[in-house]
Design a binder for these strands. Sequence first.
DNA 1: CCTTGAGTTGAAGTGCACTTCAACTAACAC
DNA 2: GTGTTAGTTGAAGTGCACTTCAACTCAAGG
Lengths: 157, 157
Amino acid sequence: MPDLLTIGELSARSGVAPSALRYYERLGLIRADRTGGNQRRYARAELRRVAFIRISQQVGVSLDEIRAALDSLPEARTPSPQDWARLSASWRSRLDERIRLLTKLRDDLDGCIGCGCLSLQRCTLNNPEDTLAGEGPGARLVLPRPTDDPTLAGSLN
Amino acid sequence: MPDLLTIGELSARSGVAPSALRYYERLGLIRADRTGGNQRRYARAELRRVAFIRISQQVGVSLDEIRAALDSLPEARTPSPQDWARLSASWRSRLDERIRLLTKLRDDLDGCIGCGCLSLQRCTLNNPEDTLAGEGPGARLVLPRPTDDPTLAGSLN
DNA sequence: CCTTGAGTTGAAGTGCACTTCAACTAACAC
DNA sequence: GTGTTAGTTGAAGTGCACTTCAACTCAAGG
């Protein structure tokens, strides 16, 4: 009944490279049992954890935050569907926010395409709150410093 | 009339750190004249280039691609509004695609929150084309390897 | 038993977009 | 002229998410 997966099997089924799975384990995102010969054997439940990790990355969440989220799962029992639903729901507002920002950027861009003025920086760039931070893997802040000169607005030329 | 900007002024007006501006120059994204004492002096037109760079990054374009886009601007004259409009418009479909993928992810997530099955990987993860590649600065492929096992679908448990 | 493919480790490397540093020079106000 | 602030350089460092490598061991089939 345990029906454990080798790292190669988990990799094939999840689409995640073995090296990435080992990396996730080092960071504490997934865990594996070991055979007598020290090889990893994954419970099928790990498949769901890996799925959650990849989905979360697409939402724009860092591995560190994903780890924190996974840490909130019950340790005693195998997480229930409701547990996963709760975690997924917690990304919802981030996703909404990202979609909102990108949509706004698109609209601003549309509004500017006619004139080529690039004045949308007035709304988009000059708005430190409106930052697409933590976009994807490896990402850092898009605007590392706050814009500190409000005279920018409308003075592009 | 030249009315040149120091690196500090360009930094303040664009919200981009001086070190980043020097980095952009090394990559050939912007250019500067020099004073007798070797200090950078930027034409006001560079302000618009920097604005374009930051907007493009928010769209999810790498500096390398941004450089290629900027290289397509006329060298002889100062780019016209139409030139900028053309470049901005060229990001439009990328933006649309990113918004589409994120919206799809959100809808899939919504559909799964009720059951917590995470089966959305069937649609989202198991779909190599549907990848949010090049999310933001520093980002690489989200799915470095194509998913190579189609038996994944529906077999999460 | 032996081969072969799959797995193990720690350390180092990669790619991107920067930042930091030290040692030095310029520009400008007074 | 002198001090202060702002600028210069190349080289190295940072953070994230991995990948690659070498040297080695395990597991399973024939």
